[in-house]
Design a protein around this nucleic acid. Structure first.
Length: 787
DNA sequence: GATGGACATATTTTT
DNA sequence: TATGTCCATC
């Protein structure tokens, strides 16, 4: 291919389409007769690449070379002359994924890939389309994209304007409803009556409509609108839809299992004409149902797109045999799936280990020790990850790693652009760029504090609403009257003058210089410099980083655009560190060794997921477990603790059912380390898992025994005397409590729960009403009789 | 406008 | 337990 030649690449006109048999197409195909990029693909991958026409569903299991297929397919479409780069629509979920894809395509076909102007997230592509036709959906092309906090503030206003008590009906909740509706492609008029009534005694629908109207007056959209408004645009203007249908000769979607209904509709409208839609995904990795992803989209693909070619990628190139089989066995317990069986040609490798710990503290300690041991054996720390179900689990683990001096990094924390100081700075810039941006204006009018408090804002609001003008304009009017007290009036006037000056500044200075000036003159930087709290320095650093990053953009407008959709902290940290993150954040990543703590009922599968979504919730949790295991290349280590503190209260816990879902032949029960906290005997090592079978109910029984005996040891050890477990034919048997000295109404002291009163006795199980922890079922060996 | 106490609240998170 | 948010108070 001749890459230096500026080919006639139709961008806005579609006049020049290469017919598949055209001279140019054939000539181009002849340049690369061998199609070297196809080399090294396995037969399924190759099939997925070469099935260019019609709907195609590629079911790509974990580690099966999905991205490679996707990029090669694009390369193939371009190299064979089937489409120009600009005629391929390629959608991803995250900007990171889009960036990586672009890089990889470039690596295969060279700079032609730069012509792929329709490679991006649903939202960035939606934005691009909307900007072109903004006026048709009641927006101006310079509309602002609201972040979550702006959205919330706006909803709060809408709720208050309707005279509803925001305390009783919090904006967050309304945001949840509206988000849900938007995910399902429903505008205010399409929300089913029953649901619309779900909020504020039947006012949900009305609030949704009011919110949308407010957005329009502000010339703003939220994330959901970026898709919804496209849908509306295409439905109301079929000619425009047709333009896009013609433009996108081929469409590709990554992570199809994560699409929501709105995105599905969006794709379906576009694909209707040419039907060249290729969706790549893995139903077994659908873990975002709670935020609107519709597994059904992928399950129903063949039904929605009749005649679809389905290609399964089942050869895994990532993990060793036991890990893969363990993961497969686990996910096979799910009902709603298309079914794939991952296979590998790699060696069996190590079995997945399962380790029980007394409590979460011990769990953290065991993981820490294991990491140290691996590190001592030259295992790279960056190839180790600890994947937790909820962020609250991280703390204890972090504490442990800090104590041990193991460097680690938390992946996925708060986003750069969501931090307060960044949003404040951006708000200033938004007002400079767009004085009518009321939300931004309101955010910074009294930040730093300059004495323009609620009372002043209220006056501004009243005027703005009455005169139907933006706040800034209302302010201009007000300062000329004596409605405000002299002091705020002067301050407000100064601020207005400043904004006028800054707006002029942006005509002569670069946007980063403008930003610098605005932040300094407004007193914003000063505010943080005076702040003596621990994180003030970090915030100033972030502001500097923001100003620095602005330099890469041609103008303020495009920077703001970028920031509302993209903006990530650029971590260029190369030091060797262990990665700590949630299972959700781990999707798409891989590590040699993966630690999976917290496999306990209630935590994982998470009780709330079970309560809210029943079986579907359980299956999603199981997929999450599957994602966790399949992140591992060579070692997967599962942990559970018998006691975990939840909201400050100690709870005794039972191992996760997912532990029992694992095929026995691929896992092994880890030996607890010899130095089991108090110098170990042989018994210590045997205690946790002496049972010959860990399957339910035997496994549970063994756990109960273990808890009974081991904890007996635990508490006894403290007082110096040690109760050993009794081992009978490999099964651990609880030391007989001999008629149990516990009686109803008796007072007992529990090691974790403290004092309580016995309410029921059932064998070695006691129901105790604890003074602080409430009623719990505990084993008698956990408690001591009091006085 | 800073401080402190009462009070609720407590998954997963991208755009 | 621990954290954040709201309100009262100085």
């Amino acid at each position: 291919m001749n890459q230096s030649d500026p080919r006639p690449d139709p961008q806005d006109s579609l006049a020049h389409e290469p017919a598949s048999g055209s001279l140019s197409a054939r000539a181009r195909a002849a340049v690369a007769p061998q199609s070297p990029y196809l080399n090294g693909l396995n037969p399924e991958q190759r099939a997925a690449v070469e099935a260019t026409e019609g709907p195609v569903l590629v079911l790509a299991g974990a580690g099966t070379g999905k991205t490679r297929v996707l990029t090669t397919r694009i390369a193939h479409l371009i190299a064979t002359g089937k489409a120009y780069p600009s005629q391929i629509l390629s959608v991803t979920f995250t900007n990171k994924a889009a960036r990586e894809m672009r890089e990889r395509i470039t690596a295969v076909i060279g700079p032609v890939a730069e012509g792929m102007q329709w490679l991006g997230t649903f939202h960035s592509i939606g934005t691009k389309i909307l900007r072109r036709h903004a006026e048709l959906v009641g927006l101006r092309s310079d509309f602002t994209i609201l972040g979550t906090d702006d959205q919330l503030r706006l909803m709060k206003q809408v709720i208050e304007a309707e005279g509803i008590d925001e305390k009783r009906w919090p904006a967050r909740q309304l945001a949840g409803h509206i988000d849900g509706w938007k995910n399902r492609g429903l505008g205010p008029d399409q929300v089913p009556a029953g649901e619309a009534g779900a909020f504020a005694n039947g006012k949900g629908g009305r609030l949704y409509r009011a919110y949308q109207e407010r957005l329009k007056t502000l010339n703003a959209v939220d994330f959901g609108d970026l898709l919804l408004e496209c849908l509306r645009l295409w439905r109301e203007h079929p000619d425009i839809l047709e333009q896009y249908q013609n433009r996108f000769r081929y469409m590709l979607v990554d992570e199809y299992q994560d699409t929501n209904v709105a995105q599905y509709l969006w794709l379906r409208l576009l694909a209707q004409a040419r039907k060249n839609l290729c969706c790549v995904g893995d139903d077994d990795q659908s873990i975002y149902g709670w935020r609107g992803a519709e597994v059904d989209n992928i399950l129903r693909f063949e039904h929605d797109f009749p005649g679809a070619t389905v290609v399964r990628l089942e050869r895994n190139y990532r993990s060793t045999g036991h890990i893969l089989s363990a993961a497969s066995g686990l996910i096979a317990k799910n009902q709603g799936r298309l079914g794939k069986t991952l296979r590998t040609e790699d060696e069996l490798g190590e079995k997945v280990t399962i380790t029980g710990a007394w409590d979460s503290e011990e769990e953290a300690r065991l993981i820490g020790e294991e990491i140290e041991a691996l590190h001592a054996k030259k295992h790279s720390l960056s190839e180790i990850a600890i994947l937790v179900r909820i962020s609250a689990q991280m703390r204890e683990i972090e504490d442990r790693l800090v104590t041990l001096g193991v460097p680690y990094r938390v992946i996925g924390g708060p986003r750069f652009y969501e931090r307060a100081e960044i949003r404040d700075a951006l708000a200033y810039l938004r007002v400079v760029n767009q004085p009518a941006d009321d939300l931004a204006f309101e955010r910074i009018v009294n930040t730093p504090k300059r004495g323009l408090g609620d009372a002043t804002i209220q006056v501004l609001h009243n005027h703005a609403r009455a005169a139907r003008v933006p706040l800034m304009e209302a302010a201009r009017f007000i300062v000329e009257t004596d409605e405000l007290k002299p002091k705020p009036r002067a301050t407000l006037r100064d601020l207005l003058i400043s904004f006028g000056r800054w707006a002029k500044l942006s005509e002569t200075l670069s946007q980063s210089e403008v930003a610098q000036t605005v932040l300094e003159e407004s007193g914003y930087t000063d505010m943080w410099q005076k702040d003596k709290s621990a994180d003030a320095a970090g915030r100033l650093e972030n502001l500097k980083e923001l100003v620095r990053s602005m330099e890469e953009f041609p103008d303020l407008q495009s920077f703001l655009e970028h920031v509302s959709l993209v903006m990530e902290a650029n971590e260029s940290d190369t030091t060797e560190r262990v990665s700590l993150m949630t299972l959700h954040a781990a999707k798409g990543l891989e590590f040699d060794t993966v630690f999976l703590p917290g496999w306990e009922e209630g935590l994982f599968p998470n009780q709330r997921a079970l309560d809210e979504s029943g079986r579907a919730g359980l299956e999603e949790e199981r997929r999450l477990a599957h994602v966790g295991i399949t992140r591992a290349r060579r070692r997967a280590k599962i942990y559970f603790a018998s006691n975990r503190r939840i909201h400050g209260l100690w709870n005794s816990t039972v191992p996760s059912r997912f532990v029992d879902d694992l095929p026995e032949s691929n896992v092994e029960i880890a030996e607890a380390p010899a130095n089991f906290s108090h110098g170990g005997s042989r018994f210590d090592r045997m205690q946790p898992f002496s049972g010959s079978s860990y399957q339910t109910p035997g496994w549970q029984r063994a756990q109960a025994h273990r808890a009974a005996t081991d904890d007996g040891g635990y508490s006894a050890r403290r007082s110096g005397e040690r109760r050993g477990p009794m081992l009978i034919e490999g099964e651990l048997v609880a030391k007989s409590t001999g008629g149990s000295g516990f009686t109803l109404g008796g007072r007992v002291l529990h090691t974790k729960f403290g004092p309580g009163t016995i309410e029921a006795v059932d064998g070695n199980k006691l129901t105790v009403e604890f003074d602080k922890a409430g009623r719990k079922m505990v084993l008698d060996s956990f408690v001591e009789a009091m006085g």
